[in-house]
């Protein structure tokens, strides 16, 4: 095992990449403006870890009121009571609307929970310099980053129902505060993922070329 080709980051080699336009600059330009796109240059997103942790923790806290407070109230001839996210899903499942019950369950509960777990794993990876499964973790990040926005589904449903079902005493739907808490949870988890700098995962990571990859090129 002598002199295996070694992965080297741009930062280790004295370069930094403009994250906005992907132009490569010398590391000495840290804090200056990119001459191509005018964005401020940073080798890593400043305060990425702090901001990402902070918004993730805030999201976890708000996840409780989001699920315990009612999100909307359906009233027909003076009858009806407020329902929570889970209550709405159970109601759908009760009425044999299995498919859309599962869609809402997935978007409103499974995705936010998975996203919170995944972000925790990623942040711990960087925080405690874990070095395992980095490629899988990067893939996991791409998936949750893409899928996270679908949690807004229930918020849109509330908006559409409230606007449409305004028939006075006959039938009437209104939104409740749980919806605000839930919307903020979605926003915070999205922000946590956006501000997270994936390059941090690899900074303490494996530097040797993985063996399954011998056909690929490009190591300077």
């Amino acid at each position: 095992m002598t002199d295996k080709p070694r992965f080297k980051s741009a930062r280790e080699s004295g370069y930094l990449l403009c994250i906005d336009c992907e132009k490569l600059h010398p590391l000495s330009l840290e804090g200056e403006l990119c001459d191509r796109c005018g964005a401020r240059l940073h080798s890593r997103v400043p305060n990425s870890m702090n901001l990402s942790w902070a918004s993730l923790i805030a999201a976890v806290i708000l996840f409780l009121p989001a699920n315990m407070l009612p999100i909307m109230t359906f009233k027909s001839f003076g009858q009806g009571e407020p329902s929570t996210i889970l209550g709405g899903i159970l109601h759908l499942l009760d009425q044999d609307m299995l498919l859309i019950g599962l869609v809402v369950l997935f978007a409103s509960i499974v995705v936010p929970v998975l996203k919170i777990i995944a972000m925790t794993i990623l942040l711990c990876t960087v925080q405690f310099r874990l070095q395992t499964n980095l490629r899988q973790k990067t893939l996991m990040f791409r998936i949750i980053e893409w899928i996270g926005r679908w949690s807004m589904l229930d918020i849109f449903v509330i908006g559409i129902l409230v606007a449409l079902v305004q028939l006075g005493n006959i039938a009437h739907i209104e939104g409740n505060d749980g919806a605000t808490a839930f919307a903020v949870v979605v926003l915070l988890t999205m922000f946590s993922a956006i501000i997270f700098d994936t390059r941090l995962i690899w900074d303490n990571g494996v530097t040797d070329l993985p063996s399954d990859n011998s056909d690929e090129k490009d190591t300077p």
């Binding site: 741009a10 490569l24 010398p26 690899w202």
Partner: peptide, 19 residues
């Protein structure tokens, strides 16, 4: 290190430097 050689690029997700 001076200037930025045109033949180098870096990955925006893991910062790997490549030709």
């Amino acid at each position: 290190m001076h200037g930025t050689p045109e033949q180098l690029i870096a990955c925006h997700e893991c910062d790997l430097l490549m030709t």
